[in-house]
Design a protein around this nucleic acid. Structure first.
Length: 645
RNA sequence: GCGCCCGUAGCUCAGCUGGAUAGAGCGUCUGACUACGAAUCAGAAGGUCGUAGGUUCGAAUCCUGCCGGGCGUACCA
């Protein structure tokens, strides 16, 4: 449809530009609310009426003869107060849609796009908040790749930060464990650290004198080559592996893991610091509360100072982030060294290191960068962009996108279900923030386990004859589908108050509903093959037959057929719209609505039992088309497609 | 205080840069499986779109005030 609309827009513009003051950008083509009104609607007579001080309806009537006939359009009507409605030539449109399945009319616009997502502190297990981040980032990546963009996925690892130091402190001071004793821990390590981190946090709260030792650990971790560093390094590497495994369960993966330790040791910050000083992007505060700090000013609030380097000379987190952002755009004149971290299915995930390596893949040097990070960090992200602006990297600042979304919080009810005790004050709140510090949260693997267990029970019920492996694999796909759809269905601005019942649902507006729809279509094709020997390869000849005799369908079937096909044809527009707005809930809703329309159609029109060959062929082509679109939509959302369920 | 965001059906949410009669899911109530798989479908009930103004051919959507809620605003990350 996207292509067809572009064609119409250009054609109509060409036909009218000499007579009317009309810009091609204003020539919007929308859809009618009802099929009987037509398929596409032009609203420009309203805008034009304002300019020419004429009645919109009269203008519409005046314009129609000038733009007809249009290729692919059966007839044109004026409607309502001044709409121009187009009725498409259905057979022609349908067959062109059928021929273009699998191809995309979208095209790339960037040299290279870098997406940074997940970014979990490597000191504890991943939780539901991280899942939202990863699902959004991964879906963006999939959609951009479909659009034809060159995409690189990075997952930044803060392996020298306070949070890792906390857990190192826990092992060394609270548990008095040596590195080899830590290595011997057999339990799920990220879970072990989750609990330990919470213990450390409360210990430090009641024993503030221990902060001295913690600071010492932090410093030593940064320095390297000492027991504290060895311990912290072991913790972070082992936790990263756990995170990658968790994300791998839902089909999320990465190309490169840049580490803060490398940023430090390769002196990225020093380089960025001298650039910032040189261009006067930051200045040394001579007096006031921030005396002795290097500060930056935001363009739109010049009275406010943001500290980049503290008076003790230590660079803040956001300072390091500026350096990293510069590197991502290839503006730093420095690079990481790279080594393989893990290999899976032949794909290598690379990690940064400060020591020179033989192999050197190329990362970074993006022309556009998306940072997937929740809304609470909007201010810091703004400072990072300000850094680029101050250095006069204006186009990069423009293409430095904070992909911002609201957090996932917990309802007091779900906290109770998890066995946490909550205070009366907390009980009254609508929601509570997930807190790693307090150990308050739903762990990603726990949620996935629950989903898989429930899905397995459903599969057992419906398909007891399947092999154990196939049952498990199917349950896993259903669990992934449920989770990923759940994380995408809400708009970015919507704070998700996590509820187990809702998240564990497989009915209604859920991932499994979409999967079930595809399974049903597959099942029809399977039966066509079994009963009639009609194979997938037999679809093509149906396609190439000259005519699709839609008039053979009953009137009501024509209406239902067209409603379904026209809706499906909006797919690429939806993908593009989702990318532009970063609202993948659009794609999710579109897929759900399309499934709903298909399921309604399915109940009304039988394929296998239809005796009229022509009608049967049309129906086969219809469900084939819907399946192609749905499969593509699911794959862009990372929702797996089970054969049976 | 300042900045940003949110208030739409009993509950959870859609509603794109203003467009034709405000939509889904869940829940409630009525129906439909000797099957193209009921993880589904059909139907019913349910809304002064927080509130008061403004902008215009047209406002849930844009602007302003007010009410209610959230987040941010660290020499933390």
């Amino acid at each position: 449809m996207l292509e067809f609309k572009d064609y119409l827009r250009e054609k109509i513009h060409k036909l009218l530009e000499k007579k009317y003051p009309i810009d091609i950008m204003e020539l919007e083509i929308s859809y009618t609310p009802q099929q009987k009104m037509g398929d596409l609607a032009l609203t420009f007579p309203f805008q034009l009426a304002k300019k020419l001080k004429k009645e919109p309806r009269k203008l519409a009537l005046e314009i129609i003869p000038l733009i007809s006939p249009l290729e692919g359009v059966e007839r044109i009507e004026a409607a309502g107060p001044g709409y121009i409605n187009l009725f498409l030539e259905r057979e022609k449109f349908f067959s062109s849609q059928l021929r273009s399945t699998g191809k995309t009319s979208l095209s790339p616009e960037e040299e290279k796009i870098i997406i940074e997502h997940t970014n979990i502190n490597p000191n504890k297990a991943a939780h539901i908040g991280h899942l939202r981040n990863a699902c959004l980032g991964d879906t963006l990546g999939r959609c951009l790749k479909y659009k034809g963009e060159n995409v690189e996925i990075q997952n930044y690892i803060d392996d020298t930060g306070v949070q890792v130091a906390d857990v190192a402190f826990g092992f060394m001071e609270l548990e008095k464990k040596t590195l080899s004793q830590i290595k011997e821990i057999k339990e799920k390590f990220d879970y072990y650290c989750w609990d330990l981190y919470a213990r450390v946090s409360s210990y430090l709260e009641s024993n503030p004198q221990a902060e001295t030792r913690k600071s010492e650990i932090l410093k030593k971790i940064e320095q390297g080559e000492n027991p504290e560093h060895e311990t912290a390094n072991h913790i972070s590497r082992r936790i990263i592996k756990a995170h990658l495994k968790t994300m791998g369960r839902i089909g999320v993966d990465y190309d490169f893991l840049p580490c803060e330790s490398s940023v430090l040791h390769l002196k990225f910050w020093e380089k960025a610091f001298s650039l910032l000083k040189e261009k006067k992007a930051i200045s040394l505060a001579k007096d006031g509360v921030n005396k002795g700090c290097w500060v930056m000013y935001l363009e739109d609030e010049p009275e406010k100072e943001k500290i980049i380097v503290r008076s003790d000379g230590i660079v803040t987190y956001v300072g390091k982030d500026i350096a990293y952002q510069l590197w991502k755009f290839g503006l730093l004149e420095e690079d990481f060294y790279y080594e393989p971290f893990i290999k899976e299915d032949g794909k290598i995930v690379w990690i940064s290191t400060a020591t020179p390596q033989k192999e050197s893949p190329s990362f970074g040097k993006g022309s556009k960068v998306y940072n997937v990070i929740d809304r609470r960090q909007a201010y810091l992200q703004k400072i990072v962009v300000q850094g680029l602006k101050s250095l006069k990297y204006l186009s990069q600042a423009e293409k430095s996108i904070h992909f911002s979304y609201e957090m996932v919080a917990l309802s007091p009810k779900s906290l109770k279900e998890l066995g946490f005790s909550i205070t009366e004050e907390e009980e009254k709140k609508d929601f509570l923030e997930v807190s790693g510090r307090k150990g308050l949260g739903v762990k990603a693997d726990d949620l996935l386990d629950m989903l898989e267990k429930k899905a397995l029970a459903e599969v057992e019920k419906r398909n007891p004859e399947l092999s154990e492996n196939l049952k498990k694999e199917t349950a896993h796909k259903i669990a992934t589908g449920a989770l990923r759809y759940f994380m995408l269905k809400f708009a970015l601005n919507s704070l998700i108050v996590f509820d187990f019942e809702e998240a564990l649902s497989f009915e209604g507006e859920t991932g499994p509903y979409l999967q079930y729809t595809v399974v049903r279509i597959n099942s029809i094709f399977r039966k066509l093959a079994e009963r009639e020997g009609f194979e997938e390869k037999d679809i093509k000849p149906l396609l190439s037959s000259k005519e699709i005799p839609l008039q053979k369908l009953s009137e009501s079937e024509q209406v239902d057929f067209w409603d379904l096909v026209l809706y499906a044809s909006k797919f690429e527009e939806e993908v593009l719209h989702s990318i532009r707005s970063l609202e993948f809930s659009h794609l999710a809703k579109f897929s759900f609505n399309l499934s709903q329309k298909f399921n309604a159609y399915y109940h009304l029109y039988s394929i296998l039992a239809e005796e009229n060959k022509e009608i049967k062929s049309i129906r086969i082509l219809t469900i084939h088309y819907i399946r192609e679109v749905l499969k593509r939509a699911l794959s862009l959302m990372g929702i797996p497609q089970p054969e049976l369920m």
